[in-house]
Computed example of a mutant assay.
Amino acid sequence: MSNTLAQKLKNKIPQKGEPRAPKAPEAKQVRLKLVYIDFMSALKLSFLLGVAQFIVVVVGTFLLYMVFVQTGIFDTANSVAGEVLGSGSSFDINAVASIGKVLGAAAAIGVVNLIVITVMGAVCAVIYNAAAKIVGGLSIGFTNQQ
């Protein structure tokens, strides 16, 4: 048994004249410092995140509205409001919360959030740049793995 193991190991060792198998490069570690965030880059990225958030808010509101309509929550709310307000009331939740009004409110909230996210991204970049001048930046380690 040890004879076959020795033979297998001998076969793995390259003989004279045989090319050696190339070694895989070793993982190289690099330590870098983030000392500056470009203002315009941060502004563009935060704007794109704000646009993504706007889309999520509007689409999510539309889907939630459709779920409310399909499950009959608005009809139930109308009947509860009729019982609470009395039989003489003409309260209709569909007049208050129509699809146009709901999506308009969601779009308005999305636009305000888009502006806030864009401004906050730019402000964070300015604050980081000021702090990095004082303390020297953020030290980050990277490794090259294959």
Rank of each mutant, 00 (worst) to 15 (best):
D92F: 06
A106Y: 02
P22S: 12
L43M: 13
L64H: 11
V116H: 02
A108S: 13
G141D: 14
V57W: 06
V56T: 08
M66L: 12
I127K: 09
Q53K: 04
F62W: 12
F142V: 13
T76G: 08
F142Q: 12
A42W: 03
V102M: 07
A105D: 04
P14R: 07
F47A: 12
A132R: 09
V57C: 06
A95G: 10
A107P: 05
F142T: 11
D75L: 05
V35C: 06
K12H: 04
A77H: 00
G88D: 15
G72H: 06
N129W: 01
V116Q: 03
A21M: 14
S89D: 09
A132M: 08
A27T: 07
T143L: 02
L138R: 15
G60F: 09
V59S: 04
L48E: 05
L45Y: 08
L63P: 01
G50K: 02
F39V: 11
I117E: 00
Y36I: 00
L64D: 10
V80K: 06
G137H: 07
G141I: 03
N94G: 15
V116L: 12
V56N: 02
L85A: 12
L45A: 07
A24S: 11
I55M: 06
F39S: 07
L43Q: 09
G110K: 09
A95T: 15
G50S: 01
V123T: 04
L48C: 06
A131M: 15
V59K: 02
A105P: 00
A21C: 04
L45R: 13
N113E: 14
A27H: 00
V69M: 13
S98C: 02
I73S: 07
D92P: 09
L103M: 11
L9D: 07
C124D: 13
L43F: 15
